[in-house]
Computed example of a mutant assay.
Amino acid sequence: MGTFIVLAVEAVAEAEESGFGLNFDILETNIINLAIIIGVLIYFGRGFLGKTLADRQARIAESIQEAEQRKKEAASALAEEQQKLAQAQTEASRILAEAEERSKAVREAVLAQAQEDIERMKAAAAQDLSSQQDRVMNELRQRIATLALERVEGQLKSGLSESTQQQLIDRSIASIGGHS
């Protein structure tokens, strides 16, 4: 403030010596005007500016504290979420391993069941083939016997005369009658 007064006094003394007139020296007039404005601002604005700057400093400090608190909360939340992620990954690995074990067991059970089914089908097919062979053999025997009887009957009817037939009948009666 002392500098301001000295500058103001020098400016007044110069004005008295040279008289009243316009000073066209831009550097000199700007410095004087600037000194006057700064002096007035310091004198009248000291309390206002001090209060405004103190309020602003308090708000900035409060904002910094809030930001640091949010940072701590975010770091805590991040650590918690990372822990949850690690637990989820562990659980996923466990589930995957368990699923692989189950699929292996199911695959082995399916293969064993398929093998049993194949063996059962082979046994059923063999039994069916054997019964088919027996049935076919029985049919062939019956067919052969039927054909043989038909042929014998055909030969008997055509090859036997009536006297031969009478002799056969008599012999048959005699053999039946003799055994009775």
Results as ranks from 00 to 15, higher is better:
V6K: 15
L7F: 06
A8S: 04
A8C: 04
A8K: 07
V9P: 02
V9G: 01
V12P: 00
V12R: 06
A13N: 10
A15K: 09
A15R: 13
E16P: 01
E16I: 07
G19C: 00
N23R: 05
N23G: 03
N23P: 02
F24A: 11
F24W: 11
F24P: 03
F24C: 08
F24E: 11
L27I: 03
E28T: 07
T29F: 02
T29E: 08
N30Q: 10
N30P: 01
N30H: 07
I31K: 14
N33R: 11
N33A: 14
L34N: 13
I37R: 13
I37V: 06
V40S: 06
V40P: 03
I42M: 12
I42H: 08
F44C: 05
R46Y: 10
G47Y: 10
L49A: 15
G50N: 08
K51S: 10
K51L: 10
T52A: 13
L53P: 00
A54G: 05
R56T: 12
R56M: 09
Q57V: 08
Q57T: 13
A58V: 04
R59I: 04
A61P: 00
E62P: 01
S63L: 14
Q65N: 10
E66F: 08
E68W: 02
E68A: 12
E68T: 07
Q69S: 13
Q69D: 14
Q69A: 15
Q69N: 12
Q69M: 09
R70W: 08
K71F: 10
K72D: 09
K72W: 06
K72S: 13
E73H: 05
E73P: 00
E73G: 04
A74T: 10
A75T: 09
S76M: 10
A77S: 15
A79T: 01
A79R: 09
A79F: 03
E81N: 12
E81D: 08
E81W: 08
Q83E: 14
Q83R: 11
K84C: 00
K84W: 02
L85N: 07
A86H: 04
Q87Y: 01
Q89T: 02
R94G: 02
E98W: 03
E98S: 06
A99H: 03
A99I: 02
A99T: 03
E100V: 02
R102L: 04
R102C: 00
R102H: 03
